[in-house]
Design a protein around this nucleic acid. Sequence first.
DNA 1: TATGAATGAGAGTTCATTCAT
DNA 2: GATGAATGAACTCTCATTCAT
Lengths: 208, 208, 208, 208
Amino acid sequence: MAYKKTPKTEAKKANNRRRLLSVTRQLVSEGGFVNVQISTVAQLAEIAIGTVYRYFPSKGDLLAELVRSLSEREVSILREIAATDAIASEKLADCVRVFASRSMKGRSVAYSLIAEPMEESVAIERLVYRRACCEVFEQIIHEGIVTHEFPDQKADISAACIVGAFMEVLISPLSLPNRNKFEDEALIEGVVEICIGIAKTSKSTNEA
Amino acid sequence: MAYKKTPKTEAKKANNRRRLLSVTRQLVSEGGFVNVQISTVAQLAEIAIGTVYRYFPSKGDLLAELVRSLSEREVSILREIAATDAIASEKLADCVRVFASRSMKGRSVAYSLIAEPMEESVAIERLVYRRACCEVFEQIIHEGIVTHEFPDQKADISAACIVGAFMEVLISPLSLPNRNKFEDEALIEGVVEICIGIAKTSKSTNEA
Amino acid sequence: MAYKKTPKTEAKKANNRRRLLSVTRQLVSEGGFVNVQISTVAQLAEIAIGTVYRYFPSKGDLLAELVRSLSEREVSILREIAATDAIASEKLADCVRVFASRSMKGRSVAYSLIAEPMEESVAIERLVYRRACCEVFEQIIHEGIVTHEFPDQKADISAACIVGAFMEVLISPLSLPNRNKFEDEALIEGVVEICIGIAKTSKSTNEA
Amino acid sequence: MAYKKTPKTEAKKANNRRRLLSVTRQLVSEGGFVNVQISTVAQLAEIAIGTVYRYFPSKGDLLAELVRSLSEREVSILREIAATDAIASEKLADCVRVFASRSMKGRSVAYSLIAEPMEESVAIERLVYRRACCEVFEQIIHEGIVTHEFPDQKADISAACIVGAFMEVLISPLSLPNRNKFEDEALIEGVVEICIGIAKTSKSTNEA
DNA sequence: TATGAATGAGAGTTCATTCAT
DNA sequence: GATGAATGAACTCTCATTCAT
């Protein structure tokens, strides 16, 4: 009657699980979800292939669990900020600030989560696409600045935010449930308002 | 010098090329880039497998070309609007409106381009993540509305726009070239301003 | 000499062994021998995987032992009947009756033993095959009934028995040891006689 | 415009198909359906693994097609005999004779079809089982011969036929559709009659 | 002696790419 | 130039067996 459960065994199991997720995260960040192969995961985690399946019943489960665990951490940080006593606009600013700087400093893998890396040539074209969209808006904003319709501002950042704002709404759960034409139009008009607001109220960062 | 390049031949070739891209687009919109197999493309385009390689040296090239051609069309529509005589804010509104409604009505494949369909469980977790992020901001906005810090507004739409705005900036080419810490911070502060602006200036759609 | 073989220990061991065989039988009857996995057996028997190997040195041994124990029970029932004082034809009838009804009522696993469940498509084709064979014989018997060569009878049952009879002889141990051509022919002629006998002497069950 | 379809190409394809089925049959006859692995099939047929899937969409389809093609040949031979002008009992005898001798001479793989070879130890036990069953019946028949209840006969063959007859009816499609208790009993009694008939009317082959 | 986590060979299947026709 | 059959590396997943505890 051996095989105690609590002491070293459980620790090893937890450690294995952690290593598997960690290694998977690494692979995702290098080449996207397509870059994850069970055999590679096993090798990097120094675990047999079959063992991977003791922890995650399928590749899909492994990936889903990864996304879940990563996003939970990020979201919990946002929630903590939201729970403070600060005034709303301060909280909002903090949330954006923390989220963005964590991503940029690579302390989170949020980047992989929101921007699935893919086959390189496709990824490049996708960036070209977004860049082109941004440029159109940037130009419009520049025009508006000249005509004093919009205040002076970092047009590139404003443009990117505009593109991001409306694209998000397109993907967002908001747009998923089956809606009717009327709701669609209301949604679009809401986004239009916000995008114009972005252009109209952005200050030059220098002034800030 | 055999003069084989008859107009007829050229027309046929152009037609084949168009069909290949069209069929590929269909497959992408059904199941993402992973859903594209050369054999299926060939079959649907009624072209031999080997012939596909006369038009595109590899699968990657086919996909890249697809993204390029699709995005060119979308961007050219935006450019046309940008080239009109309207004032900047009208142009901006039109751009957003056209882009969004084209996506929603499925007249463009922009959706596939920005939101690569993927393994279901992962996709679900990703949506959960974005939704959770949106909810945090939604709650903050609600708070701000109560304290009259922010005007009354559709908090869900504002929240989605905020999330979209800053996430876009993270993925955007703006943030990709190797920048220094100083620029990063400036960028983040710019986005923070804009996000607060969204919350502070959004009107209730009803009022609009 | 440690005296570990207490009655209690022995009883537990016997009980484990019984449970293992019982669980295995269940699995075989559900999906054939292919459906038996050591891990499942262990789980269902509430015994550790490794422990299974204390009782049966390999999976093959477990299965072999199962077949042995099951068939021993069935055969012993037949032997009991054979040992009674009844006249031969009564014993024979009882044997058939008991065997068949036990199988049909699922009280024995004889069915699994004689008809290994397998991949569905193959199993279907096999049944189609046997059915086609039976139909040929059924038709011949019908012809014979019309010409008064054979008595009126349930031609479908007779046909199935004929097919079963000669197929059995083909598989049967009778035909396994290396025999010569002469013996083969004698064997076949013996079966032919019996099959004709079946057709010639079967009564309509109604008359029985 | 090349790649003519009719001449050599089609011949090669047909040949590949034939080779695949032939090789599979070989493997089945050596170790049963379990013994068939696509990689082995491909290797023996001197064809790439992937090519196998051009001919058969899955392993199951390959096996099913094998059973189908083999059984069609056997059944068609039976049907030819059934279509002759001979009297019913002659046809019946011919059918049995041909079927049995083809099997025994290995000219057909009927053997593999009706007796799925399996893991050796299990197969052995199965044979032991059938042999034990046969022996019980053999003994009963001997008794009957002594008491002049049954005529003198090759008791071993009769016993095998009896076992085969009733086992067949158990597996046979006759017994598959959901029947009620009443029909079950009628079926069993029909088989009982036939089995007794076998014992009562079999002659010694010597006399034949 | 019992335990069950770990192992890893091996199975079925897919698909981008090649090349004889 | 066009064709599509052939290729085979690569992938996910299974499971009998082992062995440290």
